[in-house]
Amino acid sequence: MAKKIDDETIEYIGILSKLELSEEERQQAGTDMGKMLDYIDKMQELDTEGVEPISHIFRMENVFREDVVTNADAGEQMLVNAPRQKDNMFVVPPTF
């Protein structure tokens, strides 16, 4: 039985993902995600009581360094890839 991903959830996921989905894409996303979650739910069979979650394999600690600039100013090079730029700045639509 495929997990039911309702329209409201897909709408919410679309907002979180910053994606605009066509009606067809929404339907497909609901079906695909439902199938995938059905499968992923297999994890729930495992008893993980008391297991410490790990994100990195090696115990990572914060790596600190002095805040010293080592590279040259690459501002112009960085702006080369901007879809729109002006006066050494990125151009965005009005945000107000």
Binding site: I13, L16, S17, L19, M33, M43, T48
Partner: peptide, 28 residues
């Protein structure tokens, strides 16, 4: 898009513990 949406779902509040945190425990 499929993976971004699945990722946003498993990280969203209400599902974080059941999916993402669970997966990190399975990883352990």
């Amino acid at each position: 898009k499929r993976r971004i949406m699945l990722g946003a779902f498993v990280l969203s509040s209400g599902y974080y513990d059941a999916y993402y945190l669970k997966a990190l425990k399975v990883k352990a």
